[in-house]
Write a protein that binds this DNA or RNA. Structure first.
Lengths: 198, 198
DNA sequence: ACTCCAATGTAGGCATCGACAACTTAGGTA
DNA sequence: TACCTAAGTTGTCGATGCCTACATTGGAGT
């Protein structure tokens, strides 16, 4: 532990994620991170040319962790779809500020590509489940990517409303269930009788 | 035009919305606004105690305009639901940065309440249409608020993905149509045969 | 084992910003 | 007409992001 830190980059990311969780993205400053790590205010620039570059790295790591969690959802296609939705919502609730950073608009172009690619892989989980659903006769014909995108978007909407504090926790849970119920029924080739919500 | 501007508050909001549209929320600074309006850097504080207070006012105005646009959607319940979705997406595409401010998490508590109330009124448009749909026999029984929230969330998800540049423009349009198709089919008491997407 | 260089960290400085405080102006009202 | 308060001004402070010039050091290549 002398002049050179040894692993500043990872240390910065770790600390940044802590700060993000406690103080939100506005509480995040490169200089404060440097202070926290006992390093000069110019050091972070050696690893992230920008503050945005750090946020991009944070976002990328977030997508990877999310995707990992989604991939761990077990069961048949229907279970997996519901599990993915639930897992996504839980992840968002546990890391609200991170999610905001992940979906932020102002990434650097290169990072933006990487982020899109990573998000695409996450969507892949949904596509696979939808395809399985089609094979099992539980999902209508049609481009699986198209259907999966729509399904993911619907869940994403609930998550975003929850993050924006526009839904109370209990409202959020009900909304997720309702969205899933409606969507899966809408996707079914032969929907059964409706079970009223509420 | 002397010492007192006369209508600084409105002027600030107007200019702020311009800057928001051109430079995004990061390009927005109270001092720059003051400069643009030929006023000292301390003047804005007389009308907005905070930068956040200005953003809150911007967000509130945005919700009002959005709601106004949504209320103007004509037709029967089905037309209105589709029109509302389209209008929402168009509004978002035309004012991406504004929408981000509207759904930002870090509002002042008082403003937050006002914003929630305004958003609630916007949702009211959807609730009304859903209720009409139920009366017309096109929507299943159940709490209209619950169903409307789910429907709005689904559309909101598409909008948010579009704003995050995770959907190309043409993908966005298709996703909106698919979400609506799936959701309205899922809401129907007796869904007809599926029409494959794509 | 020695040299050197590129990666990494330091130090200082600059422009900008948001917020605050003290002061000034003027428009409306008692 | 006097004044009082809303609105605007000026100055300042601390913090931040970013840039440039400089220092250190570990390790690659001989």
């Amino acid at each position: 532990m002398g002049y050179h830190h040894g692993n500043l980059r990872d240390a910065l990311l770790d600390r940044a994620e802590q700060v993000l969780a406690t103080d939100g993205v506005d509480g995040l400053s490169l200089r404060a991170l440097a202070r926290d790590l006992g390093v000069s205010h110019g050091a972070p620039a050696r690893h992230f040319r920008d503050k945005q570059a750090l946020l991009d790295a944070l976002a990328l790591a977030g997508f990877r962790r999310l995707e990992e969690a989604l991939a761990a959802c077990p069961g048949n296609w229907s279970d997996r779809l519901r599990g993915i939705a639930r897992t996504y919502l839980d992840f968002a609730a546990a890391n609200p500020a991170l999610l905001a950073v992940m979906y932020d608009v102002k990434h650097h172009p290169e990072a933006s590509d990487a982020l899109r690619a990573e998000a695409e892989r996450g969507l892949g989980q949904v596509v696979d489940a939808v395809r399985d659903g089609q094979r099992a006769g539980g999902v209508v014909d049609g481009d699986p990517g198209e259907l999966a995108t729509a399904l993911f978007a619907a869940v994403h909407g609930v998550v975003q409303l929850a993050l924006g504090n526009l839904l109370e926790p209990d409202e959020t849970d009900r909304a997720l269930v309702t969205v899933l119920t409606i969507s899966l029924r809408g996707l079914s080739p032969s929907p059964g009788p409706a079970r009223p919500a509420g």
